[in-house]
Structure formats: structure tokens, C-alpha cells
């Protein structure tokens, strides 16, 4: 991992500049745009870290690193990259737990409002904000995906720099928890969700019985679905585009 190189100077002594914590630096990297800063008090509470020591190699040193503590025993230089990697893994796993707490949800709300997670690439979702999600809660299975509350589907991050971020660092439950505290999102989405796209040929619908006819309408259908774009020039308001 090339980004771990950046931590060389702050490592070993833990004497990085006082105003910039490891977590802050981590979140500032462009590939870590989806992460919020985990509160120090949360990370230093042993109770919140239950079970993580089995998942993270060199757990103790990694924890010291991300808490900006002095290492008890000096770390041999060849092991520094390994500990940096462990530190990122540990931070990610703590992050997944943190963002489903009240404090963490509020921190993510700030990021959601500033559009850090991007908007849905689907045209008919009308730029609904996305939420990071992992389909697995265990690290190493799948990279991060983005959940759209409107079409209730998951998307790949558009930028390649997110394709190495583990989905477990966000967890499968965060999106559901977040939507629970933000009922406004679902309210807006339930209106937009009614629209559905239909492929047309010279303005005519294609029969579902045709060999090349629509087969996936069910995917975006709701009991109150209606056709988007009934005639040419309708549907989307040109001023919006």
C-alpha cells in the first residue's frame, strides 16, 4: 500500500505535530474521503474494541499508532509498514462500529450534507445522496459500495481511488441506521421512486413478449409505478438539466 508511506515520519516516536492526529491525517487522504473522524474517546474505550484484537495483526502497536501514543517498546523499522497497514485496518473496523453510534451518525450526517459520498448515478434518482455500505462486516471480502436510498440499489464508486477501500470499514448496518434517523430522505425518495424508465423505439413501447423486450422492469417497479416520459419533451423539466 503506497499510502502507508505517508506515515513514516509520524511513526515510531508518535511525536507527530500536536495539532494533527493520526485519524485526521488518515481522513484527509483522498482515498479515505468516505471516512469520518472517530472520536478519541470512542477509540480509547476498550469496551468498544472488543473482539478486534483477533482480526488485526500487531493489534497493540496498531492501536498505539492510531491513538498517537508512544510505543511502549520501540518498533523495528522493517515492521513499520506492517503496523501502518494494521493501523488502517483497525481504524476502519473501529470506524464501522463508531458510525452506528449516535455520535458517529451525526458525524456522517455532516459528511452526507456536504455531499462527500456523491450522488446516485441513476438518472431517475435525481441526484439522491449515496451512503457508503459494505455487504460484508468482515474485512477482506468486498470493497466499499454505495447505497442509494431512492432506488435501494448499490453502486460502484465512480472514482478508482475508492476501489481499494474495504466495505467492512462501513459495515452493512450503517445505511439502515442512518435512514432511520433521517426520515426526510425516505420521504423524498418515495416520491421519486414512482418514475420508471422504459426503452422505446420511435416513441413506441416494446412489448415484454418480444425477444428483445423489457425483462427487468420489476427491478425498479413499485406498486404505484408510473411511466417516466410519456411523450417527447415531457418527463424531465429541461430547466433542471
Amino acid at each position: 500500500m503506497s499510502e502507508s508511506m505517508a506515515y513514516y515520519e509520524s511513526d515510531g516516536t508518535g511525536a507527530s505535530s500536536m495539532d494533527e492526529t493520526w485519524a485526521m491525517k488518515f481522513c484527509m487522504q483522498s482515498c479515505n474521503q468516505y471516512f469520518c473522524e472517530v472520536a478519541d474517546s470512542f477509540m480509547s474505550d476498550e469496551f468498544n474494541l472488543t473482539g478486534l484484537s483477533q482480526l488485526v495483526p500487531r493489534y497493540k502497536e496498531a492501536l498505539e499508532l492510531i491513538l498517537d501514543l508512544e510505543h511502549e517498546n520501540s518498533v523495528p523499522i522493517p515492521e513499520i509498514p506492517l503496523i501502518n497497514q494494521s493501523g488502517e485496518l483497525l481504524y476502519g473496523l473501529i470506524h464501522a462500529r463508531y458510525i452506528i453510534t449516535r455520535q458517529g451518525l451525526l458525524a456522517m450526517l455532516q459528511k452526507y450534507k456536504s455531499n462527500d459520498f456523491g450522488t446516485c448515478p441513476r438518472v431517475l434518482c435525481e441526484d439522491t445522496g449515496l451512503l457508503p455500505i459494505g455487504r460484508s462486516d468482515l474485512p477482506g471480502y468486498e470493497t466499499v459500495r454505495l447505497y442509494c436510498p431512492c432506488c435501494r440499489d448499490i453502486y460502484m464508486p465512480t472514482s478508482e481511488r475508492f476501489l481499494a477501500v474495504d466495505g467492512a470499514f462501513f459495515g452493512s448496518s450503517f445505511a439502515g441506521m442512518f435512514l432511520d434517523i433521517m426520515p426526510g430522505i425516505e420521504k423524498r425518495a418515495s416520491q421519486i421512486r414512482k418514475q420508471q424508465f422504459q426503452l422505446k423505439m420511435f416513441g413506441f413501447n416494446i412489448s415484454p413478449l418480444a425477444k428483445f423486450g423489457p425483462r427487468m422492469r420489476w427491478l425498479r417497479q413499485t406498486p404505484e409505478s408510473e411511466d417516466f416520459q410519456k411523450s417527447d419533451g415531457g418527463g424531465i423539466d429541461p430547466s433542471v438539466l
Partner: peptide, 21 residues
């Protein structure tokens, strides 16, 4: 989305999920 110019921008159609992005 329209055959008339200056109304909407180009979109991408996925033949697998049959939706536009």
C-alpha cells in the same frame, strides 16, 4: 432522452438492468 436537440444531455443505457445512468 429526447430526439429534439437542446432538451437533455446524453445518458447511458445498461442492457442488463435496463436502466439509464
Amino acid at each position: 432522452l429526447h430526439d429534439i436537440p437542446h432538451v437533455s444531455f446524453v445518458k447511458l443505457y445498461c442492457p442488463k438492468c435496463e436502466d439509464i445512468y
